[in-house]
C-alpha cells in the first residue's frame, strides 16, 4: 500500500493557523518511519489524515494511486489496512474481558466467526498477553502496561498493513518499552510498516531509518536518521538530539574513537569494542 499526500492543507475549526500547511509526502510499505517535531507541529493531524479521519481543506490524499475514499465500505477497508493506536489507547477500553476487547474490532469488520477467534488469540499472544492467562481477564484488573498492550492487540488483530502509533511509549516504564519494541519488531518481521509519532527521539533513532520532521504544520525534513547527528538541523527544528547521540558524541571526542554513527546502546558498545 502507498499513501500519498499532495499539497494537503487542513485547519481545525476555531483555529486561524493550519495544522497541516501544504504538505506533500508519501509513505510506502518499507519499514519504520518516525514522525517527530515540537508540540503542536501537526504530527498527530498528519497521522489521522493518513487514516482518513481528517478530510483536507485543500489538496488530495491518494491511496495506491486513487483518491482516498471519503465514506462507505472503501473507507472502512482503508482504516483496517491503516490501523491507528491513539495516545493513551487504554482509556478507550470498554469491554468486559481482554478477549472480547480484541474481538470487538474484528466483529465490526465482519470477519468470519472462526477467523475472529484465531486472530484475537494470536494478537493477544503477540503482545505478551497469553490467552490462557488473559483471555477472560477484565481489563480494569490489568496493569497500565498490560492495558496498553491490549489496546495494541485490538489493532494488530486487524492485521493492518500500516500501523500508525501516536506516542506509544508515553507513561510506559522500562520493561513496557522493551516489550513494545519487541512487538513492533515482530510486526515488522511479518511484513508490517510502522509510522511512529514520538517525542522519544532515542526510540525513533533506534527503530526508524527514515525520519520526518514537522514544524508549524510543514515538513521540515524527510530523509535518513543521520539527521540526529545534524545538530544545526535539530536546532532549527527546535528539537534536542537523542540522548544517545549526545552521550556518544561526547564519548567519541573524549576517547578519540573514530567517527561513526550509532543509533542504539548496543551499536555504541560494538563501536567502542571495534575501535579498541
Amino acid at each position: 500500500m502507498r499513501i500519498k499526500l499532495d499539497k494537503v492543507t487542513y485547519t481545525y475549526p476555531h483555529s486561524r493557523y493550519p495544522a497541516l500547511d501544504n504538505v506533500s509526502i508519501s509513505f510506502e510499505e518499507n519499514g519504520f518511519v518516525s514522525l517527530i517535531g515540537p508540540i503542536g507541529s501537526g504530527k498527530s493531524t498528519l497521522l489521522t489524515t493518513l487514516m482518513g479521519l481528517v478530510i483536507p481543506g485543500s489538496g488530495r490524499v491518494y491511496v495506491d494511486g486513487s483518491v482516498m475514499p471519503k465514506r462507505g465500505k472503501e473507507l472502512r477497508e482503508h482504516r483496517r489496512k491503516a490501523g491507528m493506536v491513539f495516545q493513551f489507547p487504554e482509556m478507550q477500553i470498554f469491554e468486559s474481558t481482554a478477549l472480547r476487547e480484541v474481538m470487538f474490532g474484528l466483529r465490526n469488520f465482519e470477519f468470519p466467526a472462526d477467523e475472529i477467534e484465531e486472530r484475537a488469540f494470536s494478537a493477544l499472544d503477540m503482545v505478551g498477553l497469553p490467552p490462557h492467562q488473559f483471555a477472560g481477564r477484565p481489563p480494569f484488573e490489568m496493569s497500565g502496561g498490560e492495558k496498553r498492550r491490549l489496546a495494541l492487540a485490538s489493532i494488530l488483530a486487524l492485521r493492518p498493513e500500516f500501523l500508525l502509533l501516536d506516542e506509544p511509549t508515553a507513561g510506559l516504564d522500562a520493561r513496557g518499552k522493551i516489550l513494545l519494541k519487541d512487538i513492533l519488531g515482530q510486526y515488522q518481521t511479518g511484513g508490517g510498516s510502522v509510522i511512529l509519532v514520538t517525542h522519544d527521539l532515542d526510540l525513533a533513532a533506534e527503530l526508524c531509518r527514515r525520519v520526518v520532521i514537522m514544524s508549524d504544520g510543514r515538513i521540515l525534513y524527510d530523509g535518513s536518521r543521520e539527521v540526529f547527528y545534524d545538530f544545526f538541523m535539530m536546532k532549527k527544528s527546535r528539537l534536542r538530539p537523542p540522548e544517545l547521540v549526545l552521550a556518544w558524541e561526547n564519548f567519541r571526542m573524549e576517547k578519540k574513537v573514530p567517527n561513526r554513527r550509532v543509533y542504539s546502546i548496543s551499536e555504541a558498545l560494538a563501536g567502542i569494542t571495534n575501535s579498541l
Binding site: 515540537p38 508540540i39 506516542e167 508515553a170 517525542h199 534536542r240
Partner: peptide, 10 residues
C-alpha cells in the same frame, strides 16, 4: 507524569 507527551525542549 504530566509531561509524557512533550518533546525535550517543551
Amino acid at each position: 507524569e504530566p509531561s509524557s507527551l512533550l518533546d525535550s525542549a517543551a
